[in-house]
């Protein structure tokens, strides 16, 4: 247990297990850099923290720059450690995008994990650039009109050595990607879809089921881009054929945040997913 039980995460929140699975692979010689987010709260205070490795709390937009500096400092002391940014979707794709892009462009020797719960959860479920089309948040009461910002692709366009998507429901695929990333030098990026029971409006028992359905319906493809080469992984390898994918509606209907979507809107989202897979078919 590298991330200890009895922390402040909501019941059913996948973050403690996601960090635990990460640290199981990167080991004791890891430094976590965490910008303002739900994880800042989960990491506790001076009464005690759940992490068994050092955690550096960072201002919202600064985590990749701080991690770059920590890695340089460790290098100068000849300390070999994995420096990992652990950031939410808001910290990654909106407010921290400039420093993320800077670190990626400089090919800093750090790992970056974005746990994507598709909104600003810590401050009470406001929309982010990574909130998907149709989703309710407190600032999109009728459902978001814009599409989800494609951050893994944007990072990949920087030409970094490793980019991957992952899911806690496919925990061994996730850990295999962390292991690969750990052994690569340079900027490594992993994007985890991270279901949030209160923010997505589902019962806390369904976290893993929903994470799994995201992959089975194809709305969350599992892949990696290693030195520019794209490869589907795990279950997603079998989903190129549309008939193998479950309808996106099966994923949507378990979540209250999508309950106001009309059948036309669901169709639009399904079409976007299908078009994305057609693109994948061309490059895979």
């Amino acid at each position: 247990m590298m991330l200890m039980r009895g922390n402040a995460a909501c019941p059913g929140c996948p973050i403690p297990r996601e960090i635990d699975a990460l640290l199981e692979v990167t080991g004791q010689k890891t430094v976590l850099v965490v910008p303002a987010s739900c994880t800042s709260v989960i990491m506790g205070d001076t009464n005690g923290m759940p992490s068994s490795v050092p955690v550096v709390h960072s201002a919202f937009a600064a985590a990749p720059a701080i991690a770059s500096g920590i890695k340089a400092a460790l290098n100068s002391k000849k300390e070999d450690a994995t420096v990992v940014v652990w950031a939410g979707d808001g910290g990654t794709g909106d407010i921290g995008l400039a420093s993320l892009s800077g670190a990626a462009e400089r090919n800093e020797d750090i790992m970056y994990l974005c746990y994507d719960n598709e909104a600003y959860m810590n401050t009470g479920v406001q929309r982010s650039g990574l909130t998907p089309y149709g989703a309710w948040t407190t600032t999109t009461p009728e459902g978001k009109r814009e599409r989800k910002k494609p951050i893994p692709q944007i990072v990949a366009e920087h030409g970094v050595p490793y980019v991957a998507t992952a899911s806690i429901a496919y925990i061994f695929d996730y850990q295999a990607k962390v292991k690969k990333a750990k052994e690569i030098q340079g900027f490594r990026y992993i994007h985890l879809l991270s279901p949030c029971p209160p923010g997505w409006r589902f019962d806390s028992s369904l976290t893993i089921r929903i994470a799994k359905l995201a992959v089975e319906t194809g709305i969350w493809p599992l892949y990696e881009i290693e030195k520019g080469k794209f490869r589907l992984t795990s279950l997603s390898k079998t989903l190129i054929d549309k008939s193998k994918r479950k309808p996106v509606l099966e994923y949507l209907k378990l979540q209250g945040r999508f309950s106001k979507m009309t059948s036309e809107e669901v169709k639009k989202l399904q079409n976007e997913v299908d078009e994305f897979w057609e693109e994948i078919q061309k490059i895979d």
Binding site: M4, G48, M49
Partner: peptide
Amino acid sequence: ARPKIGSS
């Protein structure tokens, strides 16, 4: 902060 089971 130091590592602790039951930080909350």
